[in-house]
Amino acid sequence: HNLTITQGKLFFHYNPKLCLSEIHKMEEVSGTKGRQERNDIALKTNGDQASCENELLKFSYIRTSFDKILLRWEPYWPPDFRDLLGFMLFYKEAPYQNVTEFDGQDACGSNSWTVVDIDPPLRSNDPKSQNHPGWLMRGLKPWTQYAIFVKTLVTFSDERRTYGAKSDIIYVQTDATNPSVPLDPISVSNSSSQIILKWKPPSDPNGNITHYLVFWERQAEDSELFELDYCLKGLKLPSRTWSPPFESEDSQKHNQSEYEDSAGECCSCPKTDSQILKELEESSFRKTFEDYLHNVVFVPRKTSSGTGAEDPRPSRKRRSLGDVGNVTVAVPTVAAFPNTSSTSVPTSPEEHRPFEKVVNKESLVISGLRHFTGYRIELQACNQDTPEERCSVAAYVSARTMPEAKADDIVGPVTHEIFENNVVHLMWQEPKEPNGLIVLYEVSYRRYGDEELHLCVSRKHFALERGCRLRGLSPGNYSVRIRATSLAGNGSWTEPTYFYVTDYLDVPSNIA
């Protein structure tokens, strides 16, 4: 807008934040220059609390790290170098490059900038070799853009010569660093050979998330399962459950009422301010606690030095998902009996873990797994792929695949051998790939016309006998059925096997 004052003059007093240069501009645009008398524009009460600059400061050096910015700028000295009290560095987070010096300023003089007072450097006698002032900004957020400017702080001049310097606002972004852990990993099994893994992005990506790394490792069953005799009275049979499938998407929606109208769909109840505040506090606490764990609990591995020492970490090797089922080394339970199943799973520490690289999504279907087997899954978020990966501390989750139908069934015939004193040795093959492992066998036998009897055969007993022995049988026709019990439950009964026990007292003698 054009402003013209045809008559009258300007009068400025007691404006401590208004620089004289701005008042002189007002004289020019209003056409009143030359009308004012000496005392109409006070030299001592206008701009006496402001830094009124008329020179431009330029930054000469900028260096960044993930949490620091090192700045240096060209030296500046007023005509009387004693008038320079120091520099004021202003900075704040700036997602967009549209910041002005006066953003967030209120009537009390406060604003949204963080201000650092910096002492002037030592003055050199040689004007050509003056030290460049600077400042190291610490405690910054990774991968965050900051708006920065600097200006001088000078003393009051009796001659009211307006001098000083100020830089333009520059924008500097800190470097990326390792992201925080992925949030809320959930693993479920939808079949006997697959596990579905879902997660949420890290709360602090500290860069642009480029991919996720998912490692999985087959877990050995508890050692007590191999040692305890679950045929003993009072000892509860062990059981394991597989990871249940995901709930429906509708039930997972946030901010939804727990109660549904019987007449149909209901609208979600909005969260109160107290609920939102509580969630923010919980989120802040979780982030602080995660940072504490990362800094205190997890110790970084030592990389190899120039002395030739090897990095103890196993090298990563990509495998196809079809090879995942046989990740671990199978060892027989008892070496003397080769027909026992290889369900003991000690994992070799030198073995390469299978892994998958996930790009542009937060889910993965891990296939080719062994049925009813526990897996430990390790999830890392990465925001750099080359020249070397920059990934987060791992988040861990466990899951067990679903049982395989008929995996616990005894394959092959049940054979028998009759000894003296009416002892019958029953023999059968253990299931080759049971659900988890076989903890015991149930032997059901009966003599024709009598009630059915049951015998429990422990895992250890089966390994020693290759089956079991029935003792003290009365003469007669017998039928026997056997079924295995694994961590997933009972298998199917075998087809009945028949044998006849004679009275050993009636056996004919070869003595003449």
Rank of each mutant, 00 (worst) to 15 (best):
P332D: 08
Q219M: 06
E433L: 03
W428V: 00
R286D: 14
H211P: 01
E351Y: 15
P238V: 05
S262F: 15
T386M: 06
G264L: 14
K236Q: 14
Q380I: 13
F298T: 09
V345Y: 12
V299T: 07
I418R: 05
E221D: 05
T340F: 13
R447I: 07
Y445D: 00
T386Y: 02
S257C: 06
S283L: 05
Y441P: 00
E404G: 11
P338F: 11
E356A: 13
T210S: 15
L369W: 01
P338W: 10
R240Q: 05
V365L: 13
Y212S: 03
Y504Q: 12
L426D: 01
E290I: 13
L473P: 02
G308E: 07
P403G: 03
R447V: 05
C266M: 06
Y396K: 14
V329L: 08
S458P: 05
S283H: 10
A512V: 06
E281F: 14
S248F: 14
T386N: 07
A336K: 13
Y292D: 07
K317L: 11
G368M: 11
L440Y: 14
T494I: 04
S243Y: 06
N255Y: 07
S479R: 08
H294T: 08
S392D: 02
P387K: 15
C468T: 03
R471I: 09
C269D: 12
T343F: 07
C269M: 06
V457M: 11
F289C: 04
V414K: 01
Y478Q: 02
E465M: 07
H371V: 05
T288Q: 14
M427I: 11
G234P: 06
F499Q: 00
S284W: 14
V331K: 06
F462V: 05
G467F: 04
L235Q: 07
T415Q: 13
F462Q: 06
S398E: 04
T343N: 12
L293C: 04
L437Q: 12
F462T: 03
E417G: 07
F246Y: 12
H294Y: 06
V358K: 13
A309Q: 10
S367F: 05
T340N: 08
E282N: 02
N422R: 11
S444D: 05
Y448L: 06
R301E: 04
V424T: 03
R301P: 15
E281A: 12
S243N: 13
P245R: 14
D311M: 09
R481N: 05
V414E: 01
I366S: 00
K406E: 15
E282I: 14
V345I: 03
D503L: 06
D323L: 07
K361Y: 14
Q384K: 03
D311R: 05
C231N: 03
D323N: 09
L379Q: 01
L228Y: 15
S248E: 03
A407Y: 07
N206S: 06
L369Y: 00
T485E: 15
S304M: 15
V439G: 08
S341M: 11
P349K: 12
T303P: 13
S248I: 12
W216K: 11
H454S: 02
Y448R: 15
E217P: 06
K271C: 13
K460C: 12
L321N: 12
V423R: 14
S344L: 08
V393E: 15
G306S: 08
D250I: 15
E389C: 06
S363Y: 07
V365T: 04
E350R: 14
I209Q: 11
F226I: 06
P314Q: 05
S284H: 14
P387M: 15
G306Q: 14
P244W: 07
I276Y: 11
D229T: 09
P346L: 13
T328L: 09
E433F: 15
D273G: 07
A407K: 07
S262V: 08
L228R: 10
Y504P: 09
F337E: 11
S243P: 12
E221F: 12
A484N: 00
S223M: 14
C269N: 13
L280S: 05
A484P: 11
T303A: 08
K302H: 14
N339M: 07
R471T: 08
V414S: 01
H371G: 10
E247C: 08
T494L: 02
T415E: 01
E217D: 10
G374P: 09
V334Q: 05
V329T: 05
R353F: 03
V214G: 02
E290Y: 06
E465P: 01
D506S: 12
K406P: 07
S315W: 12
G308V: 15
W216H: 02
T485D: 10
A407H: 09
P238Q: 12
L235D: 04
H254T: 09
Y259F: 10
E224N: 15
S320T: 11
V358W: 13
C266L: 09
S444V: 15
D229W: 05
A263N: 13
E227A: 06
K271E: 06
L455A: 12
S284Y: 02
Q256F: 12
R483K: 13
F499M: 14
L369R: 02
S341C: 11
F419R: 15
P338V: 08
Q275P: 07
H352L: 08
T386A: 12
E362S: 09
I410N: 02
V393P: 02
S341F: 09
E495P: 11
P245I: 13
L437A: 12
W216T: 08
D323V: 06
F289S: 07
M427T: 11
T347I: 13
R469Y: 09
V443S: 00
I438M: 04
V329D: 15
C456A: 02
P346I: 15
S458Q: 06
Y500L: 10
T494S: 14
D408T: 01
G489F: 06
E388G: 15
E227V: 12
L426F: 03
T415S: 11
S248W: 10
P403D: 08
F372N: 05
N383W: 07
I418A: 08
F246D: 07
L225A: 06
S239P: 11
Q252I: 10
P245D: 13
A484G: 04
P413T: 09
A336G: 04
F499K: 01
N208T: 10
T347A: 12
I438A: 04
